[in-house]
C-alpha cells in the first residue's frame, strides 16, 4: 500500500472471517505512536488459505494477533462466523478463541520445555473438558498419527528432545486438538531447513483438507506462500499493497513492492541470475510513516501524486486488486 480501500472485499455468506477497518497502534512514549496496522480490511472464505506477505515490521504478526484479540485492536471489526469478537465479553471471547488456533514461528520456544508431549496436547482438551480420560488419550493418539508422529515413541518425551521440524508437528497437533475452524500460521516454516520446510508445508495442506480448515498463512517468503495459498495479500507498513490469486500475483505483479519482493527470491540456477535493480534500504519507521503511499520512499516509480494522495485499492484484472497510482500493466 500503501493504500486503503475495500474494493477487494467479497461480502459473501461464505466468509468465515471478515475484518473491517482494523487499526492497531502502540503508544511507546508520551508522544510516540507506532502505527502497526492502519485501517485494514480483508475477508477469508470457508476452506480458503489467505497468505499475508511482507517484510519484518510491516504489521503481519500484529494483524494476526489483533484478529485473535491478543491484544484487541484500537478500532475496527473482527467478525468470525457472524460474531464481532471486538464486542464480546471476556468469557465469551475465551470460548470463541477455541475455534481459532495459532502456530508460531519458533517451534522450539513455543512449547513448554517442562511438559511432555502428552501434557502439551492434553492441556487444551483438559481446560475445555473434552471427553473422559480415555477419550482424550485416544484423541491425542489420533492427532499425533495425523501429524506423522509415532504416539508410543513421543508421548512421554519433552520438546528439547525433538528437532525443529518435529516440534512444529507437535505444535500443529496441539493447535488441532480443539477442532478449530481457523488456523493462523505465523511464519510456521521460516525457522526450518528447506528440506523440512517442504514436509511441514505439505502436512499443513493435508491437515487443511482433512479437517476442512480455513487458514491465514503469514510469511515473508513469496515462494513458500505460492505453494499453499488461494489468495495472497501483500502488506507494507500496516497497509495493503496488493491482493490477488497466487498465479496472477506471481505472473503479473501490479504493485512495485510485490515485484521487488518477487525479485528478491534467490533462483536456484546459476545460469538464470537476475540483473534487476534490488529494493534498497529498509522500511521507514511506523512511528512516522510517509504521507500518501507509504511505499513511495523506496519506489522508483513514485511521483509527487504519491506523496499527496493515498492510493485506494482498485481492480486491475479480475480478482486482482492493487493500491497504487502507477500500477505495472
Amino acid at each position: 500500500m500503501a493504500g486503503s480501500g475495500t474494493a477487494h472485499m467479497r461480502n459473501t455468506v461464505d466468509s468465515v472471517l471478515t475484518v473491517r477497518d482494523l487499526t492497531v497502534e502502540f503508544r511507546v512514549a508520551k508522544d510516540k505512536i507506532v502505527k502497526a496496522v492502519s485501517g485494514l480490511s480483508f475477508d477469508v472464505i470457508r476452506g480458503e488459505t489467505l497468505a499475508i506477505v511482507g517484510e519484518s515490521g510491516c504489521g503481519k504478526t500484529t494483524l494476526a494477533r489483533a484478529v485473535l484479540q491478543l491484544p484487541p485492536p484500537n478500532s475496527g471489526e473482527v467478525v468470525l462466523d457472524g460474531t464481532d469478537l471486538t464486542l464480546l465479553p471476556k468469557e465469551n471471547l475465551r470460548s470463541a478463541r477455541t475455534s481459532m488456533q495459532m502456530i508460531f514461528q519458533d517451534p522450539i520456544s513455543s512449547l513448554d520445555p517442562r511438559m511432555t508431549v502428552h501434557q502439551l496436547i492434553d492441556e487444551p482438551l483438559e481446560i475445555w473438558d473434552r471427553g473422559t480420560r480415555a477419550e482424550r488419550d485416544e484423541r491425542i493418539n489420533n492427532l499425533l498419527n495425523n501429524v506423522g508422529l509415532e504416539p508410543e515413541l513421543v508421548l512421554n518425551r519433552r520438546s528439547y528432545e525433538f528437532s525443529g521440524g518435529q516440534c512444529q508437528r507437535i505444535s500443529i497437533a496441539r493447535a488441532l486438538a480443539l477442532d478449530p475452524r481457523m488456523l493462523i500460521c505465523d511464519e510456521p516454516v521460516s525457522a526450518l531447513d528447506v528440506s523440512i520446510q517442504a514436509q511441514i508445508l505439505n502436512l499443513l495442506q493435508d491437515m487443511k483438507d482433512r479437517f476442512g480448515l480455513t487458514m491465514i498463512f503469514i510469511s515473508h517468503d513469496l515462494a513458500v506462500v505460492k505453494a499453499v495459498s488461494n489468495r495472497v495479500m501483500v502488506m507494507y507498513l500496516g497497509k495493503i499493497c496488493e491482493v490477488a490469486t497466487p498465479d496472477a500475483l506471481y505472473s503479473k505483479p501490479a504493485h512495485h513492492y510485490t515485484k521487488a519482493l518477487l525479485d528478491s527470491v534467490p533462483i536456484a540456477d546459476p545460469t538464470r541470475q537476475r540483473k534487476t535493480e534490488l529494493l534498497q534500504g529498509e522500511p521507514p519507521s511506523p512511528m512516522n510513516p510517509p504521507s500518501g503511499c507509504r511505499f513511495r520512499t523506496r519506489c522508483h516509480a513514485a511521483t509527487s501524486r504519491c506523496a499527496e494522495q493515498e492510493p485506494q485499492l482498485q481492480e486491475v484484472a479480475p480478482g486482482q486488486f492493487v493500491a497504487c497510482h502507477h500500477p505495472i500493466v
Binding site: A198, N202, D221, A223, K226, D247, Y250
Partner: peptide
C-alpha cells in the same frame, strides 16, 4: 519452493 511452481502443487 519456487515462484514459478503452479500454486497448490505438492512440494
Amino acid at each position: 519452493p519456487k515462484v514459478d511452481h503452479k500454486s497448490g502443487t505438492r512440494l
